[in-house]
Amino acid sequence: MPHTLLVLAHPRRDSLTAQVAGRLHRRLTDEGHTVDLLDLYAEDFDPRLHPADEPDWEDRDKTYSPEVRAHMRRIEAADDLVVVFPVWWFAAPAILKGWIDRVWNYGFAYGRGKPRLAAKRMVWLGLAGGPSADYAGSGLDVAMEHQLRKGVSEFCGITASSVRLLHDTELSGVPKAQRAARVRDVFAAADAALTSFHASALEPANT
């Protein structure tokens, strides 16, 4: 039975981002996955890097803080990692970056000859307020894709990884009568992204 770590990085539980995460949680459960929901805000995760969690380049077996070690265990237990977040300033929010800084640490996620996370699969699912054409025209979609997939997932040995952006998620400029349809479109895009991720996960990993 696959086990998924579903990471949510949004401060409001009624946000569209949280609704997407909730929808994916239900779908994964219905499909037979066990799901560990890591709501970074609800769990009051501290994104600040303290000395206890600063990498020691001379000791890859450093013992990190109890909070970080608990998060490491949750990552180790997962087969799949699904990260759902809002795109703010064309990047992941600070709390998610802080989670990477503190938890995906030297000696655990990287810094070993045989990467500990290599067998895992990962998808980054970002909700972007603007249209896809704007991101493509400026190259910001490619920049985000490289930073998250290459700079985090593949750097830590996870070759079965992808970055999917759900566009046009800002509803403030959408007439109220049309908002329900826009939300349905976002949900459909999220479902399609998860379906594509699962399909690609069945293919042999690149070497």
Rank of each mutant, 00 (worst) to 15 (best):
P86F: 04
W89N: 02
F90L: 10
F90E: 12
P93S: 01
K97T: 07
K97H: 10
G98N: 04
I100T: 09
R102V: 04
N105M: 09
N105Q: 11
Y106Q: 07
F108K: 05
A109D: 04
Y110N: 10
G111N: 08
G111M: 11
G113V: 03
A119G: 12
K120M: 03
V123R: 15
W124E: 10
W124Y: 13
G126E: 15
L127N: 01
L127A: 03
L127C: 05
A128L: 12
G130N: 12
G130A: 14
S132A: 13
A133N: 09
Y135Q: 07
A136M: 06
A136E: 12
S138C: 07
S138M: 07
G139D: 06
V142T: 08
A143N: 09
A143H: 06
Q147E: 13
E154P: 00
F155S: 11
F155L: 10
C156W: 00
G157V: 03
T159R: 15
S161Y: 02
S162N: 09
V163C: 10
L166P: 05
L166N: 02
H167A: 11
H167P: 06
E170L: 12
S172C: 02
S172Q: 09
V174M: 00
A177K: 12
R179P: 15
R182K: 11
R184A: 11
R184W: 00
R184F: 00
D185Q: 15
V186Q: 02
A188V: 07
D191H: 04
A192N: 02
A192M: 07
